[in-house]
Simulated assay, not measured.
Amino acid sequence: MSDVAGASFQERMAALLDKEAVADVIRRYAYGIDTRDEALVRACFDPDADIVGTVSSGPLRDYLPRLLEDVNGYGATMHQLGTQLIDVHGDRAAAKSYAVARHFRDPEGTEEVFVVGVRYDDSLRRDDGGGWHIVERHVVPIWRRTRAESEQR
């Protein structure tokens, strides 16, 4: 319920709780990637989710192992979420979330390899238990800066 004009207090509270629950799914995804917690990342998605990523695309069962293999090639990553727009309509939600993802060669984060700015365009669905899951994700690359580019400045 994105339009709260004329809504009751209970409806407005339900809308806020739904938006927070959707935002929490996206935060858990970022935390799961950065901590290499496959179970946490997988729990953010519907098992039949489709993803269009920056490196590969496909159904979750194919996409997630490739993503985790790629992420595990870095000593550390840090995803910082920024602006989010979330619209909830019943048991469906659309979310646009900006993120800056830093990728480091070493676990201590002293050797940055690259930084990327992306937008996650997500479609989510509420399951029968009331939990939200991403059913479709499109990762939109916005900018990318490598270490070599930074050192040239």
Rank of each mutant, 00 (worst) to 15 (best):
G6Y: 11
A7G: 01
A7C: 10
A7H: 05
E11D: 12
R12K: 05
M13S: 11
M13W: 10
M13A: 09
A14K: 15
L17I: 11
E20R: 15
V22E: 00
D24A: 15
D24K: 15
V25T: 13
I26V: 15
Y31S: 10
Y31K: 06
I33A: 13
D34I: 05
D34F: 09
D34E: 07
T35S: 15
T35Y: 03
E38G: 02
E38A: 14
A39T: 13
V41Q: 00
V41W: 00
R42S: 06
A43E: 09
P47C: 03
P47A: 05
D50V: 13
G53D: 01
G53F: 04
T54L: 08
S56C: 10
S56K: 11
S57R: 08
G58Y: 12
R61W: 11
R66C: 00
L67T: 08
E69I: 01
E69D: 14
E69K: 07
N72T: 03
G73C: 12
G75F: 08
G75E: 06
G75Q: 09
M78P: 04
H79D: 05
Q80Y: 04
L85N: 11
D87R: 14
D87E: 15
V88R: 01
H89M: 12
H89D: 13
G90S: 08
D91S: 12
D91K: 09
R92H: 12
R92W: 10
A93W: 02
A94Y: 09
S97A: 12
Y98M: 07
Y98R: 09
A101F: 03
A101G: 10
R102I: 05
F104D: 05
R105K: 15
D106N: 13
E108M: 10
E108F: 13
G109R: 02
V115L: 13
V116H: 08
V118T: 14
R119T: 12
Y120C: 03
D121M: 01
D122G: 02
R125V: 14
R126Y: 10
D128S: 14
G129D: 11
G130Y: 08
G130D: 01
W132M: 00
H133S: 09
H138R: 14
V139L: 06
V139F: 01
V139N: 06
V140H: 12
P141L: 13
I142H: 11
I142S: 05
W143Q: 13
E151H: 12
Q152I: 10
